[in-house]
Design a protein around this nucleic acid. Sequence first.
DNA 1: GCTTGACCTGGACCGCACTCCAGCTCCTAG
DNA 2: CTAGGAGCTGGAGTGCGGTCCAGGTCAAGC
Lengths: 159, 159
Amino acid sequence: MDTSADGAVVDDAVAEGAVAGGLSIGGVVRATGMSVDTLRFFEREGLLLRPVPRNAAGRRVYEQADVDWLSLVARLRASGMPVATVARFAALVRSGPGNEALRLELLREHERAVRERIAALGADLEIIQGKVAVYERHVREGTAAGLWAPTPSVPADAP
Amino acid sequence: MDTSADGAVVDDAVAEGAVAGGLSIGGVVRATGMSVDTLRFFEREGLLLRPVPRNAAGRRVYEQADVDWLSLVARLRASGMPVATVARFAALVRSGPGNEALRLELLREHERAVRERIAALGADLEIIQGKVAVYERHVREGTAAGLWAPTPSVPADAP
DNA sequence: GCTTGACCTGGACCGCACTCCAGCTCCTAG
DNA sequence: CTAGGAGCTGGAGTGCGGTCCAGGTCAAGC
């Protein structure tokens, strides 16, 4: 069997997104839930730890480690870290050992931001719950206290 | 003293954003923390309960009730409700009594969304904390386990 | 009388994070 | 042999949520 030129040996593995010891972009899509476009976009923006290697046909060949990294990237993005910041973090990791303190600093700062965001959402949630309670009472009992009138300024109830 | 044409009587009250029984847009800026542009944008988008009335010079005159409403709007926006949805809610309130059940539904749905968001952020936070812990250990002890290598694929530690 | 500051309008512009598209190359299955 | 599917590139387009700007009106203070 041909061991050189890529694209041999691979039979039904292709159907699962595998490409001779690696994953096709479609495989990564299935593994991460990201879209093909997003994956290519992230790569262009330097969010990956390396330019993804290509096979003989010019197609991307990912490895499990890329998927693992992308899973972290997904968490960072989902928790509100801007693409540019993920790129900075990736650049630190990419440039090898020696800057762990910087990576830690970046992660800690993000952790702080996420905590803050959660706290703020919690506060907002309380207000919203209060409103929901007011409307529940109103719908149940017909009380209008605390409801907004179509035009403000008359008796001005509790907001 | 002149009681007709606006703009009389108001002496140093102007300096506080008051405009004869109302607030100038600047006053509302100070009260809500929103920018002048945002206030006008929100008005155009129908996020207010009414078109804000103007004085003789064509300037907006807000009332406390507008500020109260805007404070709620700020919470809704801050907690991730899209402008268009706030507009729908405002439209319901604007159209007067009778649709309280709809308003309640909208608020409940948003409450659910916020809870979900908080939960998701909590999950992301745990992952991030895990990473922080790994880096802290590394920076303290020089252990490299669990750290990302510049190029993936070698031994592939725990993500 | 002139400047200054707050405010007005309509419309252009921005940053972010994707998302879509045209036009092309491969590979494989029928 | 041909059709179809997956992938490629560079670049344009999108949706959201504001933000900025030019050019103008007022009212007040010097």
